[in-house]
């Protein structure tokens, strides 16, 4: 399981610090898929990458990350090598470009394993089994990446990043470039990694909440580098409490909703600058419920069992 406490990841720029992830706390239990949703610039990708690949201009500014009760030295790029790939792994956003174009895929996998001090032969059986798991024929190992379609390359990367059964797998916007039909297949496949016990916990990062509704056990909504709301999938879907989550979900069209039957409306305004952000709640500029207290840092409210929101206007359910 993963525990994150008060994590701060800022980008250093000439003008100052961009607070991409600011004081974020959450956890992911064993056997759980946590969906991480938010709009562009909300810090979701920074968070996902920061947990595994923290490097400048992204900088660590405090907080604690524990994986299976061991503290992760996420600010030490070298020491993280002991954890990367074996304990936690990522499927990057542009997985299609992650393979070395000059190497046959099998050779490349061998090289990667050897560079980690692992004997490739000892893992061959597992590799073939995993290929079957994602519906790839064995012969892809003898092919160059250019011979594979985008979807096949992505599945190949999925196999590689889970080869050592990491405890935590982070999937960063893996489906945003895909068509709906392949999106469904890939999502179910990733969920399958968890269900088959290949990985213990999963963080699935996306901008599309409806995808999370399909596969996630819990959902965390981020806004402007902070957590807005965390809850079980059903809680978020049927009872969103943070004004941002509410408005976001009411702005999503779905098959079944037509303009003629009722106009959806978006959220007016823009997210705030994360370079010198305003104090207090960062959503207040766009929030219809804004009050005086919103200029202060919003409190954590325990809405119900396992459902929290960072907002002044949310009350606890009795």
């Amino acid at each position: 399981m993963l525990e994150v406490e008060g994590l701060k990841l800022y980008y250093k720029t000439l003008k100052g610090h961009v607070k991409a992830v600011d004081d974020v706390s959450f956890d992911v239990n064993d056997g759980e898929l946590l969906g991480l949703a938010g709009e562009s610039g909300c810090g979701k990708s920074t968070l996902g990458n920061g947990l595994i690949l923290l490097k400048p201009p992204m900088n660590y500014f405090g907080g604690m990350v524990q994986l299976d009760h061991t503290q992760l030295p996420i600010d030490d790029f070298e020491r993280m090598n002991d954890f990367r790939f074996s304990k936690l792994s990522i499927i990057p956003q542009y997985a299609m470009d992650a393979l070395n174009p000059t190497r046959k895929i099998g050779v490349y996998i061998r090289e990667v394993l050897q560079s980690r001090g692992i004997d490739p032969e000892s893992i061959m059986d597992k590799l073939l089994e995993r290929l079957k798991f994602v519906n790839l024929p064995e012969r892809v190992l003898k092919m160059y990446p250019i011979e594979l379609s985008g979807g096949m390359k992505q599945r190949m990367v999925m196999v590689m990043s889970t080869l050592l059964n990491p405890s935590l797998l982070i999937a960063d916007e893996v489906t945003s470039a895909l068509d709906v039909s392949s999106q469904k297949a890939v999502c179910l496949m990733i969920k399958g990694f968890k269900d088959a016990g290949i990985v213990k916990s999963l963080i699935f990062i996306t901008h599309d909440i409806s995808v999370l509704y399909q596969i996630a056990d819990r959902i965390m909504i981020m806004y402007a580098g902070k957590v807005a709301e965390i809850g079980k999938t059903q809680q978020i879907a049927s009872n969103p409490v943070h004004p941002y989550t509410k408005m976001l979900m009411f702005s999503l069209p779905e098959v079944g909703i037509r303009y003629a039957h009722g106009i959806l409306s978006g959220i007016p305004g823009q997210p705030p600058q994360l370079l010198n952000p305003p104090t207090g709640c960062l959503f207040k500029e766009r929030c219809p419920l804004r009050g005086k207290e919103c200029d202060e840092e919003p409190p954590v409210v325990n809405v119900e069992e396992g459902h929290i929101a960072y907002c002044w206007k949310v009350t606890q359910n009795a």
Partner: peptide
């Protein structure tokens, strides 16, 4: 959308993630 006749349309509709209904298990594989 409500009375689709082509298998492709049906497959697309089946694959859309919705906020109110979970994916049915008919697989969208190739």
């Amino acid at each position: 959308f409500n009375n689709s006749a082509h298998p492709y349309t049906k497959m697309l509709l089946n694959s859309i993630p919705s906020l109110h209904q979970k994916w049915s298990n008919t697989d969208a594989s190739l």
